[in-house]
Design a protein around this nucleic acid. Structure first.
Length: 425
RNA sequence: GGAGAAAUGGCAGAGUGGUCGAUUGCGGCGGUCUUGAAAACCGUUGAAGGCAACUUCCGGGGGUUCGAAUCCCUCUUUCUCCGCCA
C-alpha cells in the first residue's frame, strides 16, 4: 500500500511510475485518494474540536457540583449529551472515510524502481544474465513426465485419487530427492546467515492482507471457510507477517529468515498447454528467503539474495538465466523483481524457479512494520523475498537435463550426500 | 469439551468511576564520575492522526455515564484444574 504522504508530496512522480506499470488512469485514482484524504482530515478536525469541548465539560461538571451550582452543571450535562451524539456521528463518518481511503489505496500497485524496464509483456523483460551450458543428447531426450513414469518416482494418477489434479505423490527416490533438495536449500540458506523458521501453513485474514494476497488475489488461495483461514500460497505470507505490527531496532537489521513450506495455489483458470507434469501444481514445496531491511541498503541486499539464488542453481549444475521483469510483467506488490529460469532440456523451455523481489515499503505500510533508530525516529522498513528455490521445476530440469542413454538419471553431486544415491535408475 | 482466573507501555507490575497516557522496578537512550568499563547518581524513554492547538489508543467490538484502564455485554487470546488425545 502506498503512503498518502508520498502520493501527496510527489504526485507527478507517482503518476509517472504508475504509468510505467501500465496503470494509465493513475491520475484519476490518485485524485480520488487525495480527495478522500482531504475530507478525512476535515472530519477529523471537526471531531477533535467536539471531543475537546466534551472533555472540558466533563472536567468542569464536578467542580460546579462541588460549588453547588446545580443549574450550570445540569446545563453542561445536557450539552454533553448533545455533543455525544454529534461525536458518534462524526466518528462513524471518519471510519467510513478511513475505509474508503484504504480501498482507494488498495487499487494502487507499488511504484516500480527506476531500473525496471518499460514494457508490456514477458517478451519485454530484460535478460540480465544467462549462464551454464544447455545439454546436448545423442538420443531423443524424454520429458520429465515420461521419465517419472519410467523410473516410477512420481505418481500423478494416484494423487488424483487422493485429492485431485495437481497433487502428485512422490515415491521412493522421487520422495527422497524432494527431501534432499529441501534440506540442501535450507542448509545453504542457514550457512548464508538466514535463520530457519517453521511457520503455519494456514494464515488468518489479517496476514493475507498484510503481504497483499488479499483483497486482490483471493481466488488464488484455498480458503478454509469454517475458520476463515487461508492455505498459504507461499511462505512469504507467514514469515513476513511475523513482523506485522512490529517496530524493529535498526541495529537488528537486516533480519534474514528462511523457511521451507508446502505452497498451495488454486491456479484458477490457468491450466492448459505448458502445464504438464511438474510444470504447474496445486501443492508444491518451496524454500523461501525473506529479509527485513533498512531502506538505505535494501537494493544491495536484493542483489545479495539474487546471488544466493544464482549460486544454488550453479551448484545444481543447471543452465539458468535471470530476468529483470518489465513494468507490464512485474507483480502488483513489487518495486523490483528478478525472475530466475532454468532450461529444461527435453521440453526445450525456460522454467521459472524463483522470483526475488524488493517490495520497498509497500508491504511494510500495510504490515505497520517500522524501524527505529537510536533517536527513536521511525521509518517504514523494506521487505524482500525470493524463492530459494521452488522444487518441482528444479526437479523437472534435473530429470530432463541429467538423463543418460543407459545409466538412468544422474544426481547433481551436491545432492548425493543428501539423498544417498548417484543415479535414479 | 467442562469449570475457574486473567489480558495495562520493550519486559515485569500498580492502578476498581473524575488532571491516568497511566505509580514503580528492569531494560533502552543521554549525561556526571572513570585512562576505559562496571557500579553509583542525574535526566530521558509508548503508538497513531494533525501545520498546530489538540485528539485517539490500557486485548478486539459494543454499551452504561456529564465523565471509563476502572462498571455491563460480547468476541478473541492466555493461564489453572478436569476430561479427551498425536
Amino acid at each position: 500500500m502506498l503512503q498518502v504522504a508520498v502520493i501527496r508530496q510527489e504526485k507527478e512522480r507517482v503518476i509517472k511510475a504508475l504509468n510505467k506499470k501500465r496503470l494509465f488512469h493513475a491520475d484519476q485514482l490518485i485524485d480520488k485518494v487525495l480527495r478522500i484524504d482531504d475530507e478525512r482530515k476535515a472530519v477529523q478536525n471537526n471531531l477533535n474540536a467536539l471531543q475537546t469541548e466534551a472533555n472540558e465539560a466533563a472536567k468542569l461538571i464536578p467542580n460546579l457540583m462541588k460549588n453547588g451550582e446545580k443549574e450550570a452543571a445540569e446545563q453542561l450535562k445536557s450539552r454533553s449529551i448533545e455533543l455525544k451524539s454529534q461525536i458518534k456521528n462524526l466518528d462513524e463518518q471518519l471510519s467510513g472515510l478511513d475505509q474508503q481511503l484504504t480501498q482507494a489505496l488498495y487499487e494502487l500497485p507499488n511504484l516500480p524502481h527506476e531500473s525496471v524496464p518499460e514494457g508490456k509483456t514477458p517478451d519485454d523483460n530484460e535478460v540480465l544474465l544467462s549462464k551454464g551450458s544447455i545439454p546436448k543428447f545423442d538420443f531423443k531426450a524424454a520429458p520429465h513426465w515420461d521419465l517419472i513414469k519410467k523410473y516410477d518416482i512420481i505418481d500423478f494418477e494416484l494423487g488424483n485419487k487422493i485429492t485431485g489434479a495437481g497433487f502428485p505423490i512422490y515415491k521412493g527416490k522421487g520422495a527422497r530427492l524432494v527431501r534432499a533438495l529441501i534440506n540442501f536449500f535450507l542448509d545453504q540458506a542457514t550457512n548464508a546467515g538466514y535463520l530457519e523458521v517453521q511457520a503455519p501453513l494456514l494464515v488468518n485474514e489479517a496476514s493475507a492482507y498484510g503481504t497483499g494476497q488479499l483483497p486482490d488475489k483471493e481466488g488464488q488461495m484455498y480458503h478454509a471457510t469454517a475458520d476463515n483461514y487461508y492455505l498459504i500460497p507461499t511462505a512469504e505470507v507467514p514469515i513476513t507477517n511475523l513482523y506485522r505490527d512490529v517496530i524493529i531496532d535498526e541495529r537488528e537489521l537486516p533480519i534474514k529468515n528462511v523457511g521451507y513450506t508446502p505452497c498451495f495455489r488454486r491456479e484458477a483458470g490457468s491450466w492448459g498447454a505448458h502445464v504438464r507434469g511438474l510444470n504447474r501444481l496445486h501443492q508444491f514445496d518451496k524454500v523461501e528467503i525473506v529479509q527485513i531491511a533498512h531502506p538505505s541498503n535494501s537494493y544491495k541486499l536484493h542483489e545479495e539474495m539474487c546471488a544466493h539464488i544464482a549460486a544454488l542453481l550453479e551448484s545444481l549444475e543447471l543452465p539458468y538465466r535471470i530476468l529483470r521483469l518489465c513494468g507490464g510483467d512485474i507483480s502488483f506488490n513489487a518495486a523490483l523483481c528478478h525472475d530466475f529460469e532454468v532450461f529444461s532440456a527435453a521440453q526445450e523451455r525456460w522454467l521459472e524457479v524463483s522470483s526475488c523481489s524488493n517490495f520497498e515499503t509497500f508491504q511494510a505500510n500495510r504490515l505497520k512494520l517500522r524501524i527505529k533508530d537510536k533517536q527513536n525516529n521511525k521509518v517504514l522498513a523494506h521487505t524482500l523475498n525470493g524463492s530459494a528455490l521452488a522444487l518441482p521445476r528444479i526437479l523437472a530440469a534435473i530429470l530432463e537435463n541429467n538423463q543418460t542413454a543407459n545409466q538412468g538419471i544422474r544426481i547433481p553431486s551436491v545432492l548425493v550426500p543428501y539423498c544417498g544415491f548417484e543415479y535414479i535408475n
